[in-house]
């Protein structure tokens, strides 16, 4: 059984400051949905014990290839970035509950911040017949990745950088709040830092727009057994902890309680 999880890396290269794109040949390609993730065991270093959960960025169904776009934030992702085509990875997946679009939904707003843009990319290819407006926020000009793809696949695109080196200066949530009543999306799909998601959550809530957000949390098994990747979900009298790995990572924004101390580090 172990061997069936081994997948070959086709390519792995830098696409922006600290961001890498890896193509992996895998039989899971045709089962993967936008918003799901793969759970990667790191090769060559046993001391890096846990798998790394990384969202699916895109899929090439013809070639049977899964793409991940990931930020280097620690030893694990650093090792991942050093791997080359021909290397093999032990992968579980596709895991988790991804995004979904009801048949009546025609207009969708995609809101992404930084490395949180990566999980949104496959939405555009998976549901091709929807009208998309993309709101993308990056740190600076050197952090921009896959902008061409979003420009090509969406009807409208808003771009911000924190320092104004490309697009509008500022955070993407400000632009989204300014434009949302003009765009009038039937559905919002968002991923990014928790403060960003909190604002998207309240913007969607005030206007009663359906909204799905993809959460990140430090993860263990990835299959719903170990109970470590929890997030607060509203209950009649308070809240309970749900599992980000199997109940999420995509949640309806009005069901979750986002705490500021929840980390987002990619």
């Amino acid at each position: 059984m172990k061997n069936s999880r081994m997948c070959k890396i086709i390519s792995n290269h830098s696409i922006a400051d600290n961001m890498y794109l890896m193509a992996i040949e895998s039989s899971i390609a045709d089962r993967a949905r936008p918003g799901q993730f793969i759970h990667i065991k790191l090769p060559y270093d046993d001391s890096l014990l846990l798998r790394r959960p990384i969202s699916i960025n895109n899929v090439d169904l013809d070639k049977g290839v899964v793409y991940i776009a990931y930020q280097v934030v620690g030893k694990g992702t650093e090792l991942l970035s050093s791997l080359e085509s021909g290397d093999h990875l032990d992968i579980l997946g596709p895991l988790g509950n991804g995004f979904s679009i009801s048949s009546y939904v025609e207009t969708v707003a995609i809101v992404g911040g930084g490395c949180g843009i990566a999980p949104l990319r496959y939405i555009l290819d998976y549901w091709k017949d929807r009208s998309y407006t993309a709101f993308l926020g990056y740190r600076d000009g050197n952090s921009i990745y896959q902008l061409d793809d979003f420009e090509k696949e969406s009807d409208n695109l808003y771009l911000t950088t924190d320092d104004g080196s490309k697009g509008e200066k500022g955070v993407i949530t400000k632009v989204f709040e300014r434009e949302v009543d003009m765009v009038r999306p039937q559905l919002i799909m968002a991923c990014g830092p928790t403060p960003m998601l909190k604002q998207i959550q309240s913007i969607a809530n005030e206007r009663n727009i359906a909204c799905q957000i993809s959460l990140e949390e430090r993860m263990g098994c990835g299959i719903g057994a170990c109970m470590v990747c929890s997030c607060k979900v509203k209950m009649k009298d308070g809240f309970e902890y749900k599992k980000v790995c199997t109940d999420g990572p995509v949640f309806l924004s009005d069901e979750v309680i986002l705490d500021e101390n929840v980390q987002f580090s990619c």
């Binding site: 890096l48 430090r218 470590v228 929890s230």
Partner: peptide, 23 residues
């Protein structure tokens, strides 16, 4: 039992720290 707030896991060299708190 609700369990402890997240994060509940940290990787350390060849090990894992958890603080699930019996959810």
């Amino acid at each position: 039992r609700l369990g402890n707030p997240p994060p509940r896991i940290a990787e350390t060299p060849s090990g894992i720290l958890n603080s699930v708190g019996l959810q």
